[in-house]
Amino acid sequence: MRPDDLNYTKEHEWVRSEGQEVTVGITDYAAEELGDIVFIELPEEGRSMSAGEPMGTIETVKAVEEVYAPVTGTILAVNHALIDSPDLVNSEPYGEGWLVRIAVESMEDAELMSASDYDAMVG
């Protein structure tokens, strides 16, 4: 069972809401499917993002995958620990492997689902 205090996206990201901020990562399902992550490219802090906009890439040994902003807002912080240790996303996807924190400007275009709905989607 995945953390039920989080919301999830079709693009296999999780979103933790704390007031007007959200923390974003990728799910254990995505991390498992991706395999060993060797590089993560994240947006600059201060950048404005629209929900659904590509905000970075995750590279495994053989593949590059896009990561999308789940909400509209401004990048408050990126997880700099991932520069040296991208494998944290594999080992602790819901903890030390978080990707970015976003100051939310709008949830209007966000397409979020509950843990149970996400569980049903990935089967």
Partner: peptide, 8 residues
Amino acid sequence: GSALRRGR
């Protein structure tokens, strides 16, 4: 040899 990129 092969390599991949995947988007939405």
